[in-house]
Design a binder for these strands. Structure first.
Lengths: 340, 340
DNA sequence: TTGTACGCGTTATCAG
DNA sequence: CTGATAACGCGTACAA
C-alpha cells in the first residue's frame, strides 16, 4: 500500500506538501503541485480513510438509518441517498433498525463516534424531541419522509395533506360519494395529514366521511397483510362505500386482493386508490391508480442537504424541502358518474 | 469523546491494560479486568474505529456490492448480510453498482484500501477470472448467488439445476406436455443451469422442448418489462404451449400481465411458474406458483463464511455452500391432466 | 501480569 | 510557498 510518505519521497518533497495538494488546503506552487500530482497518479496513491478520519475527526461517509431496506419504499430511499453520495465520493453506510428504537439510537451513536456527521434518518422509532436535540448536536443530521416543525429546515418531506386531497378529489370527480379510508397508525403524522387532505376535498364537494368509515391500524406498518385485514373488516361490518383510499400502495394491494378473494370486483364493485407509486402498482390486477411519491428525489435532496450542512455549501440550504405528490391514473378506479 | 487513555487514567492503570481488556488479547488479572470493565461501562467508553483500523489495518466492516438494493431480491440479500453482520457487531457498507463494472471494481478497491477484507460480491459485472484473482488476494471475499468452480468454497449459491428440474416436474405432474421457457441472458450461468434442469425433467418424462420454445433476453435484467416482451413474442409468433417457465418471479409476473392484457386467462389458458418466491407472488393475480429461493439465508451464510474466513473461525468453513430451492404451490398453474 | 514506547497515515500548527 | 513536528486513538512488541 502506497502512502503519502512514499509519494513525498519519490517526488522529492515533504509529506506536508503532498498532503496539501491532495486535500486542496493551503497554497502550493504551480510547478510543484503538478509534479506531485504526476507522481500520485503514477504511483496510484489513494489516501487512507482511517488516518484521515483520525487526524481531522471527520469522515466522508453518509449514514442511513432505515427500518428495512428490503422493502420497495425503503430501498428507493437508499438508492436516492447513494446516488447523491456517490456524486461527492462519499460512502454509504446503511443500518436497518427493524423498528427497534435502541437499534436506531445505537446506530446514530456509532456514526457519531466514527466522526460521521452526515446522518439521514428514515425511521419513526425515534421521537420528535430526541431528534430535535440530536439535530442541534449533529450538523449533518437530516430527517427524510417526516416533518418536525422545530427543525423543519432539516426535514425533507412531501405534502401529505395535498396528496390526500388530490386522491379524494380524483375519486369524487369519478362520481364517488361514499369514500372510505384504510390507514396506518392513528397516532402517526402521515396518516393524519392525508386524512386531513381527504376531508378537505370531501367537504369542498359538500360530502362527508363518517368516522366509522375511517379504519386505522394498531402498531401496523402499512403492509399488504394490514390492507387485507382492514378490507375484510370493511366488508364484514357492511360499511357503505364505493371507493377506498388506502394509506399506501401495499395496503391498497392487500385490500384489492382481499376484495377479490371475497368475490368483489375491482374497480367494478369497489374502486381503490393507493399512495407512493411503487413498481407493484403495475404488477397488481387491476393496475393501481395512486399518488406518486418522488421517493428517490426526496432522498437525494435530503442527502445533498446533509452534505451542504456539514460542508458549508449554501447551494441547497434554504430551498424548499417539501416535495409535491401527484396523481397517477391507472385502472383501479371506476368512473361511476353516470351510474346509480 | 472518551478515549482509551481517559479510561486508563480513571482506572489507575496503563492504556495497554485497557486495550487488552477491550480487545481480549493478552492476559489481564481477574480483579484488574473487572475494575477496568466497570470504569468502561461507567464512562461509556467505545473504541474509535478509525484509530483501531489504522493501528491494525483491519476494520470491523463488511462491504456488500450489489447492482441495486431497491429491488426485492437484492434488498433481501442486503438484509441477510446485515443480519449476520450485526450479530458480530460489524457495520454494513453497501455499494450499488447499477451494473457498471468500473463501479464494482472501484468499490472493491475502496474497501480494500480501508482495510476491509470482508466483501460480499453480488453482481455479475465482474468476470470469473477477475474474481478468482481477487479471491486469492482478499481473504474475506465471498461470492453470493453465483458459482465459480475454482473458488467454489468461496461461493454461496443455490442448485439452479435442481430448481429448474422441480419446476418442470411440477408442471408435468399437472399434465402439461408443451412447456416453454422465457429466460434471461443466454450467456449467463443461472439461466443455463435452470434450463438444464428443466430439460432433464422433460426428458425423464419422455417429452421434449424444441429450441424455438426457449426465449432468451439480450442484455436484460430479468425484470417485469422483459417478461412482458417475451410473453408477447410467444403469442405473436404463435408458439405452441400450455405452460411457461419464467426465469424469475419478475419475468413471470410481467408475462402474466401481458397474457392477461392480450385476453388470455392465467392459469385457465396458460399456466405460469416463477422462481425466487418474492413477496410479489402474493400480490399478483393469480398468486404466483414459484420456486422458493432462500435468499436471506443464503446471504446470511455468505456473510458468516466471509467473517469466518478472516477471523479464523473454522465453524462455517467446509459446510456445504449450496442451498436447495423448493416448490411453492399457489394458483398460477392449472392441472390439465384430465382435459384435452 | 502490567507498563513503556513506538508506529499506523494523515492533518495542522508553526517556523523558515 | 515549503518543511519540520506534534498530534489523532489505538495495538503491540518489549521491558519490567
Amino acid at each position: 500500500m502506497v502512502t503519502l510518505k512514499d509519494v513525498a519521497l519519490k517526488a522529492g518533497v515533504s509529506p506536508s506538501t503532498v498532503s496539501r495538494v491532495v486535500s486542496g488546503n493551503g497554497r502550493v506552487g504551480q510547478k510543484c503541485r503538478e509534479h506531485v500530482q504526476a507522481v500520485i497518479k503514477q504511483m496510484n496513491y489513494r489516501p487512507n480513510t482511517h488516518a484521515r478520519a483520525l487526524a481531522c475527526n471527520r469522515v466522508e461517509m453518509i449514514g442511513l438509518i432505515t427500518p428495512n431496506v428490503s422493502t420497495p419504499f425503503n430501498g428507493s430511499i437508499a438508492i436516492g441517498v447513494e446516488e447523491a453520495a456517490i456524486e461527492l465520493d462519499y460512502k454509504t453506510l446503511i443500518t436497518n433498525t427493524f423498528r427497534s428504537p435502541e437499534a436506531a439510537i445505537n446506530a446514530i451513536e456509532s456514526f457519531r463516534e466514527q466522526g460521521c456527521e452526515n446522518i439521514i434518518i428514515h425511521t419513526h422509532s425515534i421521537d420528535d424531541v430526541t431528534l430535535v436535540k440530536l439535530a442541534k448536536e449533529i450538523k449533518g443530521l437530516v430527517v427524510v419522509n417526516r416533518f418536525i416543525a422545530p427543525i423543519a429546515q432539516r426535514c425533507v418531506w412531501i405534502d401529505n395533506v395535498y396528496g390526500g386531497r388530490i386522491a379524494a378529489e380524483y375519486l369524487i370527480a369519478q362520481g364517488h360519494k361514499k369514500l372510505t379510508i384504510i390507514t396506518d397508525d392513528k397516532t402517526a403524522r402521515d396518516p393524519k395529514d392525508r386524512i386531513l387532505g381527504i376531508k378537505q376535498a370531501v367537504e369542498d364537494a359538500g360530502l362527508h366521511i363518517p368516522e366509522e368509515r375511517i379504519l386505522f391500524g394498531i402498531n401496523s406498518i402499512g403492509n399488504i397483510e394490514h390492507g387485507r385485514k382492514l378490507a375484510r373488516q370493511l366488508i364484514e361490518e357492511k360499511r357503505d362505500f364505493t371507493a377506498v383510499l388506502a394509506y399506501n400502495d401495499m395496503m391498497a394491494i392487500g385490500a384489492i386482493n382481499e376484495f377479490q378473494d371475497m368475490g368483489y370486483k375491482v374497480p367494478e364493485d369497489i374502486s381503490v386508490i393507493g399512495f407512493d407509486d411503487l413498481f407493484i402498482c403495475e404488477v397488481s390486477r387491476p393496475h393501481l391508480s395512486t399518488i406518486h411519491y418522488p421517493i428517490v428525489e426526496v432522498a437525494k435532496f435530503a442527502t445533498q442537504l446533509s452534505l451542504a450542512l456539514t460542508n458549508g455549501d449554501e447551494g441547497v440550504i434554504g430551498k424548499a424541502n417539501m416535495f409535491m405528490p401527484s396523481l397517477v391514473e391507472r385502472s383501479s378506479v371506476k368512473n361511476i358518474k353516470n351510474n346509480k
